[in-house]
Amino acid sequence: MKEPEAHIVVEDLTMAFGTNIVQQNLTFTINRGDIFIIMGGSGCGKSTLMRHLVGLHRPCKGRVLYDGISFWDGDEEERQRVLRHVGVMYQSGALWSSMTLAENIGLLLEEYMGVDTEKAREVASLKLALVGLAGFEDYYPSEISGGMKKRASIARAMALDPDILFLDEPSGGLDPISGRMLDDLILELRATLGTTIVVITHELASIFAIGTNSVFLDTDTKTMTASGDPKVLRATCENDTIQNFLTRGEGRVKQRAERNGVAACLDQRAKVGG
């Protein structure tokens, strides 16, 4: 294996909406060819972190470096140049609702590759087939199910064969088989194109199947509490929250409040002050 090469470096990043701090002091590195998992409880700021990485929110503090170049210190054109090699799949899909699936993907190809409409449609069909949506070219986003929207959105994110692919909860709302297919697709993309893939997900099976590196965002302390290979984290990490997360609360650390010991829990809560 050759030496890992840093692709995205996050340095001391703090994110906030007004005075409400979402996460602070995030420092981690995403290497080229990583499948990097961003995990954490609901509402801990995973999507927000992604929005900071792809240039939709300016950080309140800290830097984001793409290939050693500070993303937010450059001008708009510099950012566009970086984003040209970034594909993003949003949590809600965010397909352009006035266009069919083929047009959604084709727009990017026409815009950047300068290909004509016919060629764009061909490539769009291919990308849709890759996510298991062959034959849905002429459907509008409102005509397909939530899970299909997610997949179509992944197809759109892959349209320009990006160097970095951001996927926000790609398997949320997918059935287990489709979820598994998606994992295979992600592994294929990395193997064939060497794409760096950043995945936000809660699916434990998928985290351990594909993740090569990860960061865990904690809701209570509002900062990252661990990073590294998720399998290693599960085996070695001593932090209760992370252990609970990675083992669905069934791991070495038993939850203190057992369901049937309710009265005890109740008494204890009352004592500690509700």
Binding site: L56, L83, Q91, S92, A94, L95, S97
Partner: peptide, 17 residues
């Protein structure tokens, strides 16, 4: 406004449009 709610505008921005 609906496009804003659905993150479609964000998708345009990150797609460089």
């Amino acid at each position: 406004g609906t496009m804003q709610v659905n993150e479609e505008i964000d998708a345009l921005k990150t797609a460089g449009i």
